[in-house]
Amino acid sequence: MAMKKDATYYDKVFEEEFLPHLDALYTFAFHLTYNEDDANDLVQETYLKAFRFIDKYVEGTNAKAWLFKILKNAFINQYRKQSKQPNRVDYEEIVSYHDEEDTTYSSYMDLREEMFQQMMGDEVTTAINTLPVDFRTVILLCDVEGFTYEEIAKIVDIPIGTVRSRLHRARNMLKEKLSEYAKKFGYQDKRIEKKDKQNH
């Protein structure tokens, strides 16, 4: 017999399955926007949208990945709004695919990263935060949140192969940016060292 889903049922799902991911969503939102107010707005919008479509959510499935996908799409739409491009309707935001590259919001992010860079003293944090947003996103989702390649592919709406290549490129970019800093702490890229040995 199907269980009747009333307001109490949805409140329970919201409290037990959605709200525990608040800190992770806020951390992700902050590292996308570098601004506490914008991060608050994004997280709030994510939860309101999740609640509006809570009847589409199947209890016990991957709530975290679903919430991250809503937040990522809200982030992209925020920059579409900034550039006065037409918005998507709510339901499409949740289920549809987005263009892989969006030069309008990429160039907007460059400006914000420049401002943020001036505020940060820590070279490492700066190196991470100056990664292009597409590359920073996969690092955050994989290395910080522990999502699988498949989950990241669904959240970001790109093929798994693209997830792997973006992670590879993002890590290489970081290694280049950090090579001088890392040497001070005894880190060294063994691939480079090995090549050097083979060439001598």
Binding site: Y26, T27, A39, V43, Q44, L48, F51
Partner: peptide, 30 residues
Amino acid sequence: FRFIKSKIHSRKPSPALIKSIKEKIRIAPA
């Protein structure tokens, strides 16, 4: 190297955000 994780600091939202979300979903249609 995966040092990187230690540099991406997790951040806590303010209690006001949780309160605001809960207030807004009370008046939002489920």
